[in-house]
Nucleic acid binder design. Structure first.
Length: 349
DNA sequence: AAGGCGGGGCT
DNA sequence: AGCCCAGCCTT
């Protein structure tokens, strides 16, 4: 049986790979706020915000967050509503609730966790985040595997098998990725891998010319870096959800999602039109919004209605609230609804 | 092992 | 119009 041939010398020269990577990182790393005067708290907050969220999106949220919740204790003692409010628009809101829970546990924890296993016992911390926190903030020699690392690793060895889910990819790549870790500087090595994936070894149009480790890369040698990794495609589902915009005596009617809702719990939205039993099919929506969420494409026509068109019985529903326009900024709206409400109020009133 | 969970950037 | 992003939790 022939030994699978990898690029020139990745497996024979892991130290060389790590050195080339870390030298590149030392010279070209981005100036990110959580890297300035780093602390354990900054690392934890940034890693939570960065779960499934791009750096550029996180930046303004991170700066605001540190100004309002400067440390674990402040966060632990802050009301949950205030915490979620600061997360407004960032998505995956259980991250915010879990981050506050983590702070509440952390301030009563002596000593703090020092291993990935210890961190992973805390709310909202999975394998990735546990490895990231303990390596970056504590120097623990644990390699992280995220989407960037999967892309880099599969390209390094030109691994073309189909991965059904990320768990499968992680299981397969973990030994290789861990074996490449620079145990002298595990935190910087991990960040360098992700930085490389974000800025050079990108999904489309990778900048192999600027890559510090292209000499170790089998996909580069083959000239087909974009063909790795091979991931299962997800099916897109389309939905339509009609909503209403109703303003009366300086207040807008909003619907609060139940506290028990799996998604967007306790957050406000423009009310769903359907429960009101209005005949809207022939009406012209004042606004038609489209948005993509995960594997869904949702089209949401918004109809302007007068209060008189809504029956008194439906208006007594406990989840409906007349929010004064001057106080709309105080409540937490679900993502795009914040922008839609603003656009509607400017357009109509 | 799947499916749900947000929203936005980028091609 | 799709894909992906410094993933985690529940079922």
């Amino acid at each position: 049986m022939m030994q699978r041939s990898y690029a020139l010398n990745l497996l024979d020269d892991k130290v060389g790979f790590g050195r080339a990577l870390i030298n590149w990182y030392d010279e070209y790393q981005r100036d990110l706020p959580w890297r300035q005067a780093p602390t354990l708290y900054k690392t934890v907050v940034s890693e939570f915000m960065l779960q499934q969220t791009q750096v550029v999106t996180v930046l303004p949220y991170f700066e605001r967050w540190l100004a309002i919740f400067p440390d674990f204790k402040t966060l632990a003692e802050a009301p949950e509503a205030a915490v979620v409010k600061q997360w407004e628009g960032l998505g995956y809101y259980t991250r915010a609730r879990n981050l506050k829970k983590l702070a509440m546990v952390f301030v009563n924890l002596e000593p703090p966790p020092k291993t990935p296993e210890g961190w992973q016992a805390l709310p909202g911390v999975g394998p990735y985040t546990a490895a990231a926190i303990s390596s970056i903030a504590q120097g623990y020699p644990q390699a992280v595997i995220d989407g960037n690392v999967v892309r880099i690793a599969t390209r390094l060895i030109a691994e073309g098998r189909l991965f059904g889910g990320s768990a499968e990819a992680h299981r397969f790549l973990s030994p290789l990725v861990q074996s490449l870790l620079n145990v002298e500087r595990p935190g910087d090595h991990n960040q360098a891998m992700m930085e490389l994936g974000a800025t050079v070894c990108t999904k489309a149009n990778p900048l192999c010319v600027k890559c510090p480790v292209s000499a170790f890369c089998e996909a580069f040698r083959l000239g087909t870096p974009e063909s790795f990794p091979v991931l299962l495609k997800k099916v897109l589902v389309r939905r339509q959800v009609a909503r209403i915009c109703c303003v009366h005596e300086g207040a807008i009617l909003l619907e609060r999602r139940p506290s028990t809702a799996r998604r967007l719990a306790d957050m406000y939205e423009l009310p769903h039109a359907e429960p009101f039993g209005l005949l809207l099919e022939k009406e012209i929506p004042v606004l038609i919004k489209k948005r993509g969420i995960a594997q869904e494409i949702i089209e949401e026509p918004i109809y302007q209605v007068m209060k008189e068109a809504l029956s008194d019985t439906t208006l007594t529903r406990a989840d409906l609230h007349w929010v004064p326009i001057s106080e709309v900024d105080q409540v937490t709206l679900s993502g795009p609804h914040r922008r839609w409400v603003k656009a509607l109020l400017e357009k109509l009133y």
